[in-house]
Design a protein around this nucleic acid. Structure first.
Length: 266
DNA sequence: ATGGCACATTATATGTGA
């Protein structure tokens, strides 16, 4: 089963890119971020016509998250984090799909640092860490996927020294990411590619994509039972080269089928 | 330190992103 995350940077403005990617790569489950569309303006019919069930949490102008599935119905379990510091911002959606619990998230950018936006990022991160602990404690097979707006290590940023004061690479933000991982989550991309330079984002300026001046900020984190089923993790970096594309490339994992439950011996 | 680009908005400039 292939599970993908993509920050689409405007679901309507970039709908042709999204449709082409879904047709070519056919992810079984996908989470999307930065819809930049109010609830009533989500292109539901286009997505359903491609064979996907879909739920979404829209917001005018900014943020907005969605989940797509072509492997069975989506059973939404929550939208918004418990104790969300600003419920008006649509940044979290969670659902049971095909035997998995999938969380799609869009962590705040947090720039400029210092400032109220950075404080909000840290607060949101703390709420996520608390909720993630509950998800792990449930024992369910969970995928936490989305745009985390964090480069975890120096390997994840083209010029680390230039990003030290940025909200995406600040020490306290990276520390929060590692506190989350230490609960027992597996960073799927990094686990499959331990030493590789692998990015998920290239900005629109200065030919960043052409120069491979990128960042790895989109992540898929796996609960322990799913980490055992991880067989591949990749970035569809070619999508970043298409016309009118997002500045993020789709990122995905492949999970092996769950082992059937052991039958009792007679 | 700045600005480069691109999205959205009861737009024609501004806020936001990373």
């Amino acid at each position: 089963m292939k599970i993908a995350t993509c920050n689409v940077n405007g679901v309507n403005g970039r709908l042709p890119v999204l449709v082409r990617w879904l047709e070519e790569e056919q992810p079984d489950i996908a989470v999307l971020q930065e819809l930049k569309a109010p609830q009533e303006k989500f292109p539901e019919k286009t997505i359903r016509d491609l064979g996907y069930d879909v739920v979404w949490h829209g917001q005018k102008s900014w943020n907005g998250v969605a989940m797509l599935s072509r492997v069975g119905e989506i059973h939404e379990t929550r939208r918004g984090l418990p104790g969300d510091p600003d419920p008006a911002q649509s940044r979290y959606i969670e659902a049971a799909v095909n035997g998995l619990l999938i969380a799609g998230l869009y962590l705040p950018n947090g720039n400029p640092r210092p400032g109220p936006k950075f404080d909000y990022k840290l607060l949101w991160f703390e709420r996520l860490i608390e909720h993630a602990a509950d998800l792990l404690a449930s024992g369910a097979p969970v995928v936490l996927a989305g745009d985390f707006n964090v480069m975890p290590t120096e390997l994840d940023v083209y010029k680390p020294e230039r990003w030290l004061d940025d909200a995406l690479f600040a020490p306290e933000v990276r520390a929060a990411f590692f506190r989350l991982l230490e609960q027992g989550w597996t960073d799927a991309l990094r686990t499959m590619h331990p030493d590789e330079t692998i990015y998920t984002f290239w900005d629109y300026f200065r030919n960043a994509y052409g120069r491979n001046a990128g960042l790895r900020i989109d992540h898929l984190l796996l609960s322990p039972s799913l980490a055992d089923r991880l067989v591949d993790a990749q970035v569809d970096r070619q999508v970043r080269g298409w016309e009118k594309t997002s500045d993020h490339a789709p990122t995905w994992i492949e999970l092996a089928d769950a082992k059937p439950a052991r039958r009792k011996q007679k």
